[in-house]
Design a protein around this nucleic acid. Structure first.
Lengths: 299, 299
DNA sequence: AGGCGAGCATAAGGTTTCCTTGGGGAGTCG
DNA sequence: CGACTCCCCAAGGAAACCTTATGCTCGCCT
């Protein structure tokens, strides 16, 4: 333990010497000067505690210990080369896995195009996707169960803390009313004018935010239905059972049959972001995926 | 090639970090300080081109590249440990092979006791023996076919050049005459008094030296027989076919039935040495063998 | 909420290691 | 015998390494 340990550099030099047959030739092969080879060999012999090669006049011959080291060197250096190759593949995006967690409406629009671009640019990489909403997705991020979490945040909600935040787009929320509804053809409607309508709400956070906005406008919405399933919301609106306020992304991802989308005032919007950990943001495959997500978000 | 290569030290640190779970714990495990671990890890991440671990609050987790490196590290470090163990065995005389070349009369006396002592002291070592005389044995030494050559040299003959010479003993040459010969009971005889005797010579070099000595004494010996086989020489003398001058070692190794040994003047002697190459002299197993040879030579 | 301990990062300093340049000696070949 | 090759040696500067010291963040505990 106390003696200087054998390092990979030593074995590289030894192998070069053994294959080239002389220090000078080994130095040329290694791209350094001959005294450098001399010193490395001396250091290695010091670590080994015995001479490794015997020079008799012109030619060099390995001692028993030298033979043993050369024999081991090939395996060791091969393993090391394999390791370097593997991390180079990871770093060079010829391999790598990115685990994505997305909220439902994000996964149906943003993610497919981003993943397609990723696959086209870096065929060796693999992207997996799981659906979950914050705070579950952030938990998974911190627990190491994914590398990137797609999430959204309403204006009033808290920031993301120490996470790396990559803004993707700000999602304007639109009102959704049945065809034939009095406001179906309006350019925009004040939210207060919908005070007496029955409401159909989305996910818990969306619902909570809806209530906040409505109360700011002076009324408490009467929520008849609440469901995570956006197509279901659209269906309910289309059936004339109420009105809804939905993220534009969610509307786009569903064929809104029997409904009309109208702008609502005051403007309500949510910020859609990709989240990751500071260290992960520097991983090439993660960085590439973030880039493609941002590109996809720009339409 | 241009980026700093991954070294064994890096992998040792990485493995310690992965197993200990923190830089500080790894530092304790490695017997160094925590900043040292920090720096090594930073260097390794630089060489890898991608982060290797992600720190989320309290705990560390390996990235994909980190996992890959740790996976390879065990094999690489195991190979390296095996290599170190093998050379340590060689250096520690728990293993090793010494190939000896000896001239015939040396191998029958010196070598057996020296080899026995070597085997007793270092049971892991192996000694092999081949018989040959100089200059053949020196050729074998230079060609790498043996590590130690036992040889002898008469006074007038050339030095050994750049070889490492370990003097073992100086072998006095004795005259050998048949029982009943006029000088059989003499204390010593001048070599000139044997000018008219029929001679029985040994190996070519011994024979050449015999001629030189006799000519210095003023006569040319009549050589009736010449043979490499010392027992044969003794037998011929015992049969009354002539006289001989033999190394004491050679006489001792044979039961000299029917003959008498007498001192001859001027004193003739040959120097028995062990030869090796400068580099080989530093190989532990060779050094140990040389030591045991010298010890055996001292009776 | 504030204090505390653990853990990591960073900066600075000193030591060691590493590599290069320059010069010398020994062996080999034309 | 001169030219070439190869190696060692010494000295200088550059780089790597490790340590001490310091500050910061986080989780935990009172």
């Amino acid at each position: 333990m106390l003696g200087p340990m054998i390092e990979a550099r030593h074995l590289r030099v030894l192998r070069a010497v053994a294959s080239a047959g002389s220090f000078s030739a080994a130095a040329r092969e290694l791209g350094c000067t001959q005294p450098a080879v001399s010193q490395q060999m001396k250091a290695l012999e010091g670590a080994a505690g015995t001479p490794l090669l015997v020079r008799t006049g012109r030619e060099m011959r390995l001692t028993e210990a030298g033979e043993a080291l050369v024999r081991h060197a090939s395996g060791i250096l091969a393993g090391l080369a394999a390791a370097e190759e593997e991390v180079a593949a990871l770093a060079g995006l010829r391999a790598g896995r990115v685990r994505l967690v997305s909220f439902p409406s994000g996964s149906s629009t943003l993610v497919p195009t981003a993943v397609a671009a990723m696959r086209a640019d870096h065929p060796g990489t693999r992207v997996s996707l799981v659906e979950a909403e914050p705070p579950r997705s952030v938990e998974m991020l911190r627990a190491g169960d994914c590398e990137i979490a797609l999430a959204f945040r309403y204006e009033a909600e808290p920031e993301w803390g120490d996470l790396v935040v990559r803004p993707l787009l700000t999602d304007r929320l639109v009102g959704l009313v049945p065809e034939g509804h009095p406001f179906a053809d309006a350019d925009e409607v004040g939210i207060g004018t919908l005070a007496e309508e029955p409401w159909i709400a989305g996910c818990p956070r969306c619902r909570r935010h809806l209530v906040q906005v409505c109360e700011a406008a002076g009324f408490t919405p009467r929520i008849d239905f609440a469901t995570d399933d956006y197509p279901a919301v659209v269906g309910l609106v289309g059936a004339g059972l109420g009105v809804a306020v939905l993220p534009e992304l969610a509307v786009e991802s569903v064929r809104p049959r029997g409904t009309r989308a109208v702008r609502v005032t005051p403007a309500v919007q949510r910020e859609v972001v990709a989240l990751t950990l500071p260290d992960l943001a520097r991983v090439p495959s993660v960085a590439a995926m973030l880039h493609h997500l941002a590109t996809a978000a720009q339409r």
